[in-house]
Amino acid sequence: MTVLKTGVLVMDSAEPESLARFYAELLGAEVGPAAGDGELFLVTGGSGVVLGVRRDPNHVPPSWPTPEDSQQAHLRILVAADSLDEAEREAVALGARPLSAEEDGTRRDNRTTLRRFSDPAGHAFLLAAVREEPVAN
């Protein structure tokens, strides 16, 4: 018998609760501390745990998207194509910083399907257009 498991991407942050709240607002989810662990906050939605944010007082933001560095892990948030502009406005209003195509060495003409950002702690994430409505939380 296989033991039931769930995988979750965990990001480090000097201020994990505030970063978890950023993602909860952006994803329409909720946030709370992991059971028995005051250093880890979980962002959860209707489909379960979406993301974890762990306290690291020495956190240094990743250097991506500079061309000389690797991309590293990043979160790709799927958005209906006709809602991409609205999703971008929401992300920026919550504290995301847009990353220009020039910063990551890519062409500007893909902005119709992809938008790049850094979250308040400096982690990279993308808003990516999909043809159909993404699954709701």
Rank of each mutant, 00 (worst) to 15 (best):
L51G: 14
A124F: 15
F41W: 12
V60F: 01
P98G: 12
A80C: 03
V130S: 14
F125N: 06
V43A: 10
A20V: 07
L94R: 03
N110Q: 09
S18G: 02
L75P: 06
A14Y: 09
T112L: 05
F22K: 02
E103T: 09
R108F: 15
L42W: 06
Q71E: 09
F117C: 00
R21M: 14
E88D: 13
G48Y: 08
A34C: 00
G48Q: 03
V53D: 04
V92C: 13
R111L: 05
A35M: 10
A81G: 02
T2M: 14
P62F: 07
L84E: 08
P62K: 01
E15F: 14
A24N: 07
L127W: 00
E88C: 06
T66L: 09
S18P: 07
P98D: 02
D104V: 10
D85L: 09
T113G: 12
S47L: 03
T6V: 09
R76I: 14
L99H: 13
T44E: 04
V135F: 15
L114T: 02
E39P: 00
L99W: 13
D85G: 05
G52F: 03
G46P: 11
E86K: 01
Q71L: 13
R116I: 13
A24C: 10
A96V: 00
V50G: 10
F22C: 01
T6A: 03
E88K: 06
R55G: 06
E86A: 07
A24V: 08
T66Q: 11
L114F: 04
D82K: 00
L126K: 01
L40A: 05
S13H: 03
P16K: 04
M11Q: 00
A87M: 08
R55I: 05
S63E: 15
A101I: 05
P134C: 10
R131P: 04
Q71R: 10
S63R: 12
E86Q: 07
R89P: 05
F117A: 13
A121G: 08
H74F: 12
V135C: 13
F117R: 00
A24M: 05
L27I: 08
P16Y: 10
A29P: 01
Q71K: 07
S18I: 09
R21P: 03
N110R: 07
R131E: 12
R131I: 09
V8S: 02
R55P: 08
F22V: 08
S13M: 12
K5R: 07
E17L: 03
V53I: 04
L75M: 02
G105A: 15
G28E: 00
A93N: 15
R107K: 14
A24Y: 06
Y23M: 06
P16N: 01
L78F: 13
S83N: 05
D56W: 11
R115T: 05
V135L: 09
R111V: 09
V31H: 00
E90S: 14
T112G: 07
E15Y: 11
L99V: 13
P61F: 05
E25Y: 04
L26T: 01
E86N: 02
E17C: 07
A121C: 04
D12Y: 11
R107C: 06
S18D: 02
I77A: 08
A73V: 10
